[in-house]
Design a protein around this nucleic acid. Structure first.
Length: 530
RNA sequence: GGGCUCGUAGCUCAGUCAGGCAGAGCGUCUGGCUUUUAACCAGACGGCCUAGGGUUCAAAUCCCUACGAGCCCGCCA
């Protein structure tokens, strides 16, 4: 098999065949929580951008927040009072929490913070500012003049017949503030104004600078030309024939005289078994939530390892650990192929913080330590990991703690039981003898290390050891005829402490608990017969 | 009604552009680690590449058809 080229590098090559300097653009409407489905777009764009840069070419990367789009409806997460804002541009609607300048900033701010963590640093534009600055004025003029041609393109490509009053420009009503309720009645190219009637009953004149916006299908190609976009990823919803990319290409070429950007069509991210992620269905995992749970590299890796046109199945529960494992394995593997290395390289986010402690192992450590960081560090040290970078370990511990709380399935969780678990009732005589002897030895011992505990349990098998003798005596058999299966012993330990038949590696698990507590718990368990 | 994308091991996916022995990780099983764990190491098991047809010396890969999954257009980012 020939050398495998990562899809991002393939895209870079395709794009470079068309020209040397490039502007990679991406845009998302901040009408609700921006989820990891949306993140695919930005990561895809970032990776294409990085691939171009890595080839030594000139490239820029911009993100346009569609802040001038109207609010479509009162989303489930919004208060009923937002009904009056439906139809107004997002940037002109009050912030749901009152802490941000407006509605779109409320959702944009955490998203931009997340981008930073992901090592994605595009130049950020806000559509409302672009309109208000007059960036679109030329395009608006052309669109108004060539209205009928645009309508013809839309009709031909998408098969829809625009209504009589259709216009590529939607003025924002000065009375009611809505951008989706007006119809254009005239315009003045010199004064750069547009006249309108609004369904609220008013009429007026607005400036082409910020007085309204182009409809989506015209806005997009207008933006390509105004900003010089040459590469843009977009969801498959825009990609089919008659869709907005299709009409956008025609409008860009025939109306604005601009070659449409190179498309990168990406599939949806499916959430577990629940189907496509979508704000409107409420099947959503927000990016900020995910960043609480895993390092940013993992999220990049999720997207980078899969070609854009394939859907990604994402499950933040147990399968997430497999994803993390995959990444860590690849990261530290000495067998990594150039392709693997490229994936790792592209997955790099800002301020990589790497410890040699596997995420999965930390889920156990964290629970043994009941989340206490000092105890976590102690256990980590005892397990032989490098503890020089405490900050990284803390980040990992925080991630793991959040994962346990937010997504871990019950069978991945355990906790030291405050009271003797009822499962102790089913212990065999052998297990009871062991627990009694074990606690007797604990009583007269000093503090034990994990290895001490480990060796102590296994010493039960050795004829002549103290534990072996004590068990034999309690069972009333000779040490030689005593059959010992350590598995039963571990089970007895786990059941009496955790209430479940298995658990974390017993040695350091026991050593992380109070010796006196253990001695007492085992003694109780040994005689528990309800 | 029309169109787009996907279908490869139990799971998550590479490999398809550019045809050349069917791949990785996880899981499972077996063994190892001074003694069976939810750490670590090694090995094995595991496939009609969704199905059928075509092109070819050669097809997971290219072409046609069917089925399954998801989505788009037809009102609407």
């Amino acid at each position: 098999m020939a050398e495998i080229t990562h899809w991002a590098d393939v895209i870079a090559d395709e794009v470079l065949a068309k020209g040397r300097t490039h502007l990679v653009a991406t845009g998302i409407t901040p009408s609700g929580h921006i989820h990891i489905g949306n993140m695919r777009e930005v990561v895809t764009a970032d990776v294409a951008y990085r691939a171009l840069i890595d080839k030594g070419e000139e490239a820029e990367f911009i993100y346009i927040a569609d802040t001038y789009d109207p609010l479509r409806k009162v989303y489930p997460f919004l208060d009923e009072s937002y009904a009056e804002h439906v139809g107004k541009p997002l940037s002109e609607i009050p912030c749901p929490c009152g802490e941000h300048d407006n509605y779109s900033e409320h959702f944009l701010e955490p998203f931009l913070t997340a981008l930073d963590h992901l090592g994605i640093h595009p130049k950020v534009y806000r559509a409302d500012e672009l309109y208000k600055e007059g960036v679109y004025v030329e395009a608006i003029k052309q669109a108004l003049v060539k209205k009928d041609e645009i309508a013809a393109i839309l009709q031909k490509r998408s098969g829809k017949t625009p209504v009589e009053t259709w216009n590529p420009f939607n003025p924002i009503c000065k009375e009611c503030g809505k951008v989706n309720a007006t119809i254009v009645t005239g315009f003045d190219l010199d004064a750069e104004t547009v006249d309108y009637d609004c369904s609220c009953g008013s009429s007026g004149t607005v400036s082409m600078k910020g007085g309204g916006k182009l409809t989506w299908r015209v806005d997009w190609p207008a933006r390509w030309k105004a900003l010089g976009v040459t590469v843009e990823p977009f969801g498959k919803d825009h990609a089919s024939r008659g869709g907005s990319y299709d009409t956008g290409v025609a409008i860009a070429e025939e109306i604005f005289g601009y070659e449409a950007p190179h498309p990168i069509v990406y599939e949806w991210i499916m959430l577990g078994q629940k189907g496509a992620m979508s704000s409107s269905t409420g099947v959503v995992v927000s990016i900020s939530d995910m960043l609480k749970v895993v390092p940013p590299e993992i999220l990049r890796y999720l997207i980078i390892r899969t070609k854009p046109e394939k859907h990604i199945r994402f499950d933040p529960a147990l399968p997430l650990l497999t994803l993390v494992d995959d990444f860590e394995r690849l990261h530290s593997s000495d067998k990594a192929t150039p392709y693997d290395k490229r994936i790792i390289e592209l997955s790099h986010a800002a301020g990589l913080c790497h410890t040699d402690i596997p995420f999965k192992h930390m889920t156990t450590i964290h629970q043994v330590a009941a989340g206490d960081f000092d105890r976590i560090i102690n256990i980590v040290k005892r397990a032989g990991y490098d503890v020089s970078n405490e900050k990284c370990i803390r980040e990992l511990a925080d991630n793991v703690g959040n994962w346990l709380e937010m997504y871990a399935p019950d069978n991945a969780k355990f906790s030291v039981q405050d009271d003797l678990p009822v499962g102790s009732a089913s212990f065999t005589d052998f297990q009871r003898a062991f627990l009694t002897a074990f606690s007797d030895i604990l009583d007269k011992s000093d503090e034990l290390t994990g290895e001490d505990y480990h060796n102590l349990v296994y010493s039960s098998k050795e004829v002549g050891s103290e534990l072996n003798k004590m068990i034999a005596s309690a069972m009333d058999v000779t040490p030689e005829s005593l059959e010992v299966n350590p598995k039963d012993l571990f089970k007895a330990i786990y059941v009496s402490v955790l209430g479940q038949p298995s658990g974390p590696k017993a040695g350091w698990f026991l050593s992380s608990l109070e010796k006196d507590f253990l001695a007492q718990r085992f003694r109780e368990a040994a005689v528990y017969r309800p």
